[in-house]
């Protein structure tokens, strides 16, 4: 079809030869920008927390920290990318409870949470709030539980998809309260508020940021928060624990993870810089805007925390028979 001359072929191949680039010199860590992978879509809570943290971590570690979105379902592609990255401490990831949920929920993961990754530090703690439709004849947590028990199988609850923290929080709540209700998944809790206002959805566990616009003018009712202690936001709403379900705690936490083979002294440097960044008042103020609180930890305490979360959700998932085949 194409008439081809040998001289042309030579020219083509000459053009296809790649060229070289300057080689980076080895110096003490960190001597080049660090990439903080955010495995969820831009614009959400993960993105905000991650970008705020990246900015301040850059100051405390003395190197630019670039926040990079690598999105994909359940944060798996982003986490997998870091699990396989060079173990030099220049590629780290911030993950949410999905990292503790997915090993039980999904039949297979491309990485092993505990073998391929290590915790550098915890990042924050952010409770959820139990909200109910204004069409239900209930005003308080107690009335709600009583109503739900009197109407088994009639209520619907929404979530941001199967196996997400808001979903599992509701499952845990249902299991412990002895209620039966139907799970209706949405692409995000935000989408479900219209249906909650009209009464098609009866209740949900939502992040503070997601619920505030709707509870501010009572278009949906806040009934209880999922932390053990009340915080600054929803200070007049009881915790589920004090309202009667002892020890009920669900947290939308984040942790920073690095590839498992990163040497201990590098992890130590990263951890020290993270602890310093998380203690900054600016960080505290920024996190507070979406109802989160900075929490730092040692790598060991972070690992122990991750294990306990894994055990907690494993039980909920197995009891509700949610695991994928």
């Amino acid at each position: 079809m194409t008439s081809f001359r040998f001289s042309d072929a030579l020219l083509w191949s000459a053009l296809l030869i790649p060229f070289a680039a300057p080689q980076a010199l080895a110096q003490a860590y960190p001597n080049k920008p660090i990439r903080l992978v955010l495995p969820y879509a831009p614009g959400g809570a993960t993105d905000f927390i991650g970008r705020t943290l990246a900015q301040h971590l850059g100051d405390t570690i003395g190197q630019t920290v670039i926040a990079e979105n690598r999105t994909g379902s359940g944060g798996i592609p982003g986490t997998d990318y870091v699990a396989r990255a060079a173990p030099d401490g220049y590629t780290i990831v911030m993950m949410d409870p999905a990292i503790a949920i997915n090993p039980t929920l999904l039949p297979s993961l491309p990485f092993d949470t505990f073998k391929d990754l290590q915790v550098v530090s915890r990042v924050n703690s952010a409770p959820l709030v139990l909200v109910a439709s204004p069409t239900l004849p209930v005003k308080t947590y107690d009335e709600f539980v009583a109503y739900a028990k009197a109407n088994p199988g009639k209520l619907n609850f929404s979530s941001a998809g199967i196996g997400t923290s808001p979903h599992l929080a509701s499952e845990l709540f249902i299991q412990r309260a002895g209620i039966s209700a139907v799970h209706v998944p949405y692409r995000g809790i935000g989408q479900s508020y219209t249906d909650m206002m009209s009464g098609k959805i009866s209740f949900a566990f939502s992040s503070f940021a997601g619920a505030l616009p709707f509870t501010a003018d009572n278009r949906v009712r806040p009934l209880a928060v999922s932390s053990l202690k009340r915080g600054a936001i929803y200070a007049d709403v009881p915790t589920v624990d004090e309202a009667g379900m002892k020890g009920f705690e669900v947290d939308l936490w984040y942790v920073i993870l690095a590839p498992a083979a990163v040497p201990a002294d590098t992890v130590g440097k990263l951890n020290a810089a993270l602890v310093k960044a998380l203690a900054l008042p600016e960080v505290k103020a920024a996190f507070a805007k979406i109802g989160a609180e900075p929490v730092s930890s040692t790598p060991q305490a972070g690992t122990a925390f991750l294990k306990s979360e894994y055990e907690k959700w494993r039980k909920v998932i197995l009891d509700a028979n949610l695991q994928q085949k």
Partner: peptide, 24 residues
């Protein structure tokens, strides 16, 4: 840089009218 140069040069091969130097 390399990937883009490769795709541009390779796809230039698809047309009879392409000229090597120009495509480069």
């Amino acid at each position: 840089v390399i990937a883009l140069i490769v795709v541009v040069l390779v796809s230039a091969l698809a047309s009879r009218e392409s000229r090597p130097v120009e495509a480069g």
